[in-house]
Design a protein around this nucleic acid. Structure first.
Length: 554
RNA sequence: GCCCCCGUAGCUCAGGGGAUAGAGCACCGGCCUCCGGAGCCGGUGGCGCAGGUUCGAAUCCUGCCGGGGGUACCA
């Protein structure tokens, strides 16, 4: 990408200036270039002179001047200037900028692809909500973030596997099973109330009804007896199917649905990991429970692995799960995307990864702050135990998958988010996603109209693109590779919808100022159609990575 | 108490060591004889407080104030 080429020029200038004796020898700090806020400061700016003025024992302006003299010529660069208090500003050549319209259009969907990941195998695990209830709004945020990150990392040359960890074992699942069985019995007329701490939501009745229709009274036992464990598992399967369908509605599709229960199978990772921890002296037994001596690994305290009732904790199975990720499946890198309520779990899991022989440096936990719901000024509780919850499906059906995803992606992950249902539903036309999609529809409309009138971008000369709005648009197109790199580096997909808005804005301005189809200027018409091709490529790409559709008409 | 995240325009949010802090919505005023006005142009308005580090701080550090989350033999 062009930014890296500019950076290379600055580095070369530094080396050349030192070789020529215009700057003293010293080890330079990490050099970066950035985009100045003001266009008169150029397309790229290096603050290197300011950073090394001390090392060089020279004034920053003098350092900048020494560098400027040694910047090697480059076809994309038309000017290099020194600006106070000591910036080195580089200006892109207008001819080069214009030519990029043809480059981008020719690259098509290959544009902005990269080999940043060099085929690294990355697993991204996200949502992984308990299958004891339907997916809710908060889970939707994780879904949008995870799936977008997976798309971007794939395009950046990572080999990405998307996974949903199905918590189909443990206490909550057992409680769900008992609740389900109570509902099932109720359907046969028994006066049974759902257990204390059970799941009061009406969806459990739906699942029970489904099981009754499929299996009749097959699972009905004499009153007072415990249900067949297979009954609860069937219920969980139905819940998982529902979750899968809800996420698919938002365009989220996984490579793998990984069962927690399978960890505990004979010879599975769970027993293996316990033995491993025991062999390494990480296990202590006290108060009737089995503990992971994590305080010896720098944690603030020990944590229970096996409760005194013999049941493994979530933490224990999670250690086995991460063992499976790192050791068994050998992922080069693992990204877990969790809600901020799991924050305390991060260092524990990292400590555990270390203890079982993985490298905690290769585990990234991306926490997203919680989503709160309101209707106008009225707060809506999200709790799963409250019975009535707002499901993700409900949101998607009301505002559409595109707006839902865009909306969830907009704030950075470490910003809490207020999802106003009333606003999302009532003002869906004013959602920024429409502004971006409208840009795409406009482009498609013009291209179609041009074709009908016999115009195409065939043989276009990009050099005719000299209007300021055209150049602003092209510069914006060239930004996508940088945006994608930032998304990958910082695990911050929120840059994408913001970029999409800037891109759409640059297009709308161009559209307003530059008429495309003009019979009296056919060569310019072709050039502008070429630019539209390029803009369409980038807009489609950006929307596609977010999982948002790029409609030809609206 | 301790740990994590956040206080930026009336609202929702970007910017997270650079030069005069941005966008959307809202509000005020303009722009279609012409490719889609779901658009464009202009205007009003802002870094919680106090110290510190730095050539330079919205950005880093410390303290305080305010909001959210965590601190289970729940997941």
């Amino acid at each position: 990408m062009i930014r890296d080429e500019i950076l290379a020029l600055v580095l070369q200038a530094l080396a050349a200036a030192q070789a020529a004796g215009d700057l003293p020898q010293f080890a330079a700090p990490e050099v970066t270039v950035e985009h100045p806020q003001r266009p008169e400061h150029g397309d790229f700016s290096a603050n290197l002179p300011l950073r090394i003025q001390g090392l060089a024992k020279m004034k920053a302006m003098e350092v900048a001047e020494a560098l400027r003299k040694h910047v090697p010529p480059h076809p994309a660069v038309s000017d290099v200037r020194v600006a106070p208090p000591g910036f080195l500003n580089l200006y892109l050549s207008p001819g080069w900028v214009a030519a990029q319209a043809a480059e981008v259009a020719a690259l098509g969907e290959r544009f902005a692809g990269s080999d940043l990941g060099r085929g690294q195998r990355v697993q991204i695990e996200y949502v992984s909500a308990n299958p004891t209830g339907p997916i809710h709004v908060g889970n939707g945020r994780g879904a949008a973030i995870g799936s977008t990150l997976a798309n971007v990392m794939t395009s950046a040359g990572f080999e990405v596997e998307q996974e949903y960890y199905v918590n189909d074992a443990g206490t909550q699942v057992a409680i769900f099973g008992r609740t389900l069985y109570a509902r099932y019995q109720q359907l046969f007329g028994r006066e049974i109330s759902i257990p204390e701490n059970g799941y009061p939501g009406s969806y459990v009745i739906d699942v029970a009804t489904g099981l009754k229709e499929a299996y009749g009274e097959q699972f009905l036992k004499p009153e007072g007896e415990e249900p067949d464990p297979a009954f609860g598992r069937l219920g969980i399967e139905i819940m998982v199917d529902g979750i899968r369908a809800d996420l698919a509605l938002m365009g989220v599709v996984y490579d793998e649905w990984y069962s927690e229960r399978s960890l505990q199978a004979e010879g599975g990772p769970y027993n293996l990991v316990l033995d491993l921890l025991r062999d390494h002296g990480h296990i202590v037994e006290r108060e009737g429970a089995v503990w992971f001596a994590s305080s010896e690994l720098g944690e603030s305290k020990d944590n229970v692995l096996i409760r005194s009732d013999g049941m493994p904790t979530y933490y224990a199975t999670d250690i086995a799960y991460h063992y499976d990720k790192f050791i068994t499946r050998k992922f080069d890198r693992v990204i877990d995307i969790w809600g901020a309520d799991h924050q305390g779990h991060v260092s524990r899991v990292k400590a555990a990864v270390q203890a079982v022989g993985g490298d905690p440096e290769h585990l990234d936990v991306l926490l997203y702050q919680l989503v709160s719901l309101r209707r106008g000024t009225e707060a809506v509780p999200l709790s799963k135990r409250a019975g009535e919850i707002v499901t993700l499906r409900e949101i998607v059906e009301e505002v559409g998958a595109d707006a839902t995803r865009f909306f969830f992606l907009l704030p950075s992950a470490n910003q809490t988010m207020d999802f106003d249902l009333e606003l999302a539903k009532k003002q869906s036309d004013e959602n920024p996603v429409f502004y971006v999609q409208y840009a795409h529809a406009r482009i498609a409309g013009v291209i179609t109209k041009a074709r009908e009138e016999g115009f195409s971008s065939e043989g276009a000369d990009p050099a005719l693109l000299t209007h300021e709005a055209e150049h602003t648009l092209i510069r914006k197109l060239l930004l996508l590779p940088e945006v994608l790199e930032t998304v990958v580096r910082d695990l911050a997909p929120h840059h994408l919808p913001h970029y999409a808005q800037e891109l759409a804005s640059a297009f709308h301005v161009f559209y307003t100022q530059c008429r495309v189809i003009d019979r009296e200027h056919e060569p310019l018409t072709r050039s502008r159609l070429l630019l539209l091709d390029a803009a369409r490529v980038v807009l489609e790409r950006t929307l596609g990575l977010m999982g948002v559709s790029a409609p030809d008409q609206m």
